[in-house]
Amino acid sequence: MPFEYPASVRRGLSERMRQGEAVLAVHAESGICLGTLYRWKHQALVDAGLAAGTPSTQAPDLQSAAKRIRQLEDELAIVKAASALYDGQVVVPPKGSSQLSTGS
């Protein structure tokens, strides 16, 4: 499982890199992996509107929307599979089953 840094550390270092401090200098000082620092810097630039991407504030909404889409796609697959079973045939209720009366 990846190590998670406190949000305050991430915010502070991201802000420093966004303002122009070299990633290698932050790496030398903090010991945090270069890949992690580059991701943080990119996300800080996105959040500041200086780079293309999804802002941090929208990420949870997009994740929940993607989850809902997957659920709906799964439901659709089930409905298609069930409708394929009937193959356009008329379903007749079994003999002896109760039927609704018309009240006449």
Rank of each mutant, 00 (worst) to 15 (best):
D74I: 00
K67D: 02
A48N: 10
R39M: 01
P93K: 14
A48C: 02
Q99H: 07
S104N: 05
A44V: 03
L100V: 11
H42C: 08
L13W: 15
M1S: 12
S64E: 12
L72G: 04
G103N: 13
A65C: 05
I69V: 13
E4W: 01
A59M: 13
G31L: 09
L34P: 00
Y5G: 02
L34N: 02
P6D: 13
V46R: 03
V46I: 14
A51S: 14
Q58A: 05
V9H: 11
E29Q: 11
L85C: 10
V91D: 03
P55K: 14
G20T: 04
G35Q: 05
Q89L: 13
S98P: 01
I78E: 15
R16C: 03
A25Q: 10
Q43T: 09
W40D: 01
A82Y: 04
G12Q: 13
S14C: 05
T102Y: 09
D61M: 07
L72N: 12
P94Q: 02
G103Y: 12
A84T: 06
I78R: 14
R11K: 11
K41S: 01
H42W: 08
V91Q: 06
D87K: 09
A48R: 11
H42V: 03
G103I: 15
Q89P: 00
M17T: 06
V9M: 13
P2S: 14
A59C: 07
H42D: 07
V92T: 13
H42K: 15
H27Q: 12
G12T: 08
A59K: 15
L34Y: 04
P94C: 00
T102K: 14
R16H: 10
Y86D: 09
V9A: 11
F3T: 14
A66R: 15
G88H: 02
Q43V: 07
L45G: 02
K80M: 02
A59T: 14
G31K: 08
L62C: 00
E21Q: 15
G88N: 05
V46Y: 10
L37Q: 07
T57H: 09
S14H: 09
R11P: 00
D74Q: 13
I69N: 11
P55T: 04
Q99A: 11
V90K: 13
P93H: 09
R10P: 00
L72T: 01
K67H: 09
S101H: 14
L37T: 02
K67S: 10
G31F: 04
T36V: 01
Q43D: 08
Q19Y: 03
A22H: 12
V46N: 06
D47T: 01
D61L: 14
A51L: 08
Q71M: 10
M17D: 01
A51N: 07
S97M: 08
K95W: 02
G96F: 02
M17Q: 04
K41Q: 15
P6I: 02
L62P: 03
T54L: 10
E4A: 09
R68D: 11
M1L: 06
P94R: 07
G53K: 06
V92I: 07
